[in-house]
Design a protein around this nucleic acid. Structure first.
Lengths: 295, 295
DNA sequence: CTGTCAGTTAACTTTTTCTTAACCTTAATA
DNA sequence: TATTAAGGTTAAGAAAAAGTTAACTGACAG
């Protein structure tokens, strides 16, 4: 069986609705001649005329009258289906992947603000450390810490970060302020095995690194341990800032080391500028801009 | 606003239903590459992917899942609309135009046979002497008496016709058989002004025609007048045969003159071979073939 | 009559769609 | 582990479809 000439049906619908080849042509932004031949094609396919050409005005034949309603229903159904998918570009579900630590310490405290401002977007954040495969999942974007380049993806820098030592305010009272980075090495340091600390250890010199091994391998646990006075944690400003400002953590020494990597908003090109993605991205950027830096 | 890419939607539907580019391509009788680019086009238009390509198997994305049902409904609606019009090609209304006389005297007596054999065809016969304008009406075909050529129309000969004098059986008893055409001129002749009689008057010679004028101008009235013994009618075999065979009319002389014209089935080319038209045409031809000739 | 409007037709151009053929990835097989 | 096959993608070019312009036709209004 030969398939239905869909475009000719659309032309037919426009002409039949206007009862005019010329108006139909105008509506479809084509010449009357194009419309004429499309209709001719459809009539040939159906092996019967669809319009009576009576001088300068046309009317539908019986066949045309019978065809029109179904074609209108069908086309409108298709239009709506496409429209609905289009709508989801600004509203609907927005799936974001990010790292557990950033989610817990930075995003979650700010999230209610987003929900309040954008009820039309159903934001779903997933905590996941590995790389997202955007080809095989429905994630629209991710927030990642890195050098800024991900193959095949568009990215935008959100903010820089700094490494800094933190401990509980009580501990700081007990041991007193620390005046040099070398002094710091006299205490228990918590940190996670990761290249994130490279910048920090470069400042200490290679020897500093060799001598130390991570005691805990989860950034959140480290911060919690520091908060409870168990030692000094090597953390990131982005994760600790809120606790410092709230007085739950203190800085034994003001020295900070900027990390090589930064936070980036990462997304496949076809999602990057989707309205709902753009809205979320802009919201992130605003909050990053007003986020404090460690002096 | 830019319009919906209908053909791409059809491709999408086939691929989504089969969950395979290859199967979809086979179904649409195109190469996988063609399908691939159609989908790519649609995805570009919607600015979001519709399938997850996971190695050798594909799945629908959220957007794809949302799009599919509406597209299926829409396409099926269009298919049905087109199908319904196609159906009408074999069933449905069949509008035929013919001349009042032939309708009355030849078709109507045979019509119940057609209705019995073809209940699916809603035959509507219209009696009309003038030429049918097939462009501006819904007539599918006409039966006309003529030379066999109508511009822009297909025609097929149904049967020849003959001119012959008829009168009531009683009158024939009274005046006795007539032995030559010249004898005939001694009586009152009824005929209708029309070029149909040319063949007849050619046999009589020009003078015959000059002296006679039509007394009645309606073929049916003429036959009725003859039947009631009011004179001799110059009629056509096709119209009188039935009455002759039933004994309501008699032939005062056996001489018949074949007309220049014949009966033709006439139809626009796009209707000529429509199933329902063909069926009716064949039915006519069968009846014409078994219709008697005047010796 | 004449001019105009609406639709058609024909020749030609542009755009879209399809095919072919090489390539890539994944999964099954030797 | 290398090999093969299946399924999808890509690029270049060919084929098909759709569009344009311009001349033509026929109906209608002034």
């Amino acid at each position: 069986m030969t398939n239905t000439p869909l475009n000719a049906l659309r032309t037919f619908e426009a002409v039949a609705r206007n009862l005019s080849f010329a108006k139909g042509a105008e509506e479809l932004n084509v010449s009357p001649a194009a419309v004429s031949s499309q209709i001719r094609l459809l009539e040939a396919r159906l092996e019967q005329p669809l319009f009576h050409r009576k001088g300068r005005q046309i009317t539908l034949t019986e066949a045309g009258k019978k065809l029109l309603p179904g074609v209108q229903r069908g086309l409108s159904e298709l239009r709506q289906a496409v429209l609905k998918v289009g709508m989801d570009r600004s509203a609907g579900v927005l799936n974001i992947s990010t790292m557990p630590t950033l989610l817990q310490k930075w995003i979650l405290p700010r999230l209610s603000d987003f929900y309040e401002g954008h009820a039309e977007i159903d934001l779903r954040i997933n905590a996941d450390t590995g790389l997202v495969n955007f080809e095989q999942t429905d994630f629209h974007a991710a927030i990642r810490f890195g050098a800024g380049k991900w193959p095949g993806l568009k990215s935008q820098k959100l903010m820089d970060d700094w490494i800094l030592p933190v401990c509980s305010p009580e501990m700081l009272r007990d041991i007193g302020p620390i005046n040099s980075i070398e002094d710091l090495q006299g205490h228990d340091l918590f940190f996670v095995e990761s290249e994130v600390w490279d910048s920090w250890f470069r400042v200490l010199g290679e020897s500093g690194r060799e001598s130390r091994w991570p005691l805990l391998n989860d950034s959140l646990s480290i911060l919690m341990a520091a908060e409870q006075g168990q030692g000094i944690a090597l953390s990131r400003w982005s994760l600790a800032a809120r606790d410092i400002e709230a007085g739950r953590l203190a800085r034994p020494i003001k020295t900070v080391v900027k990390t090589d990597w930064s936070y980036y908003f990462v997304s496949p090109p076809h999602f990057f500028d989707l309205p709902k993605v753009r809205i979320f991205r802009q919201w992130l950027l605003d909050h990053c801009a007003s986020f404090s830096t460690p002096e």
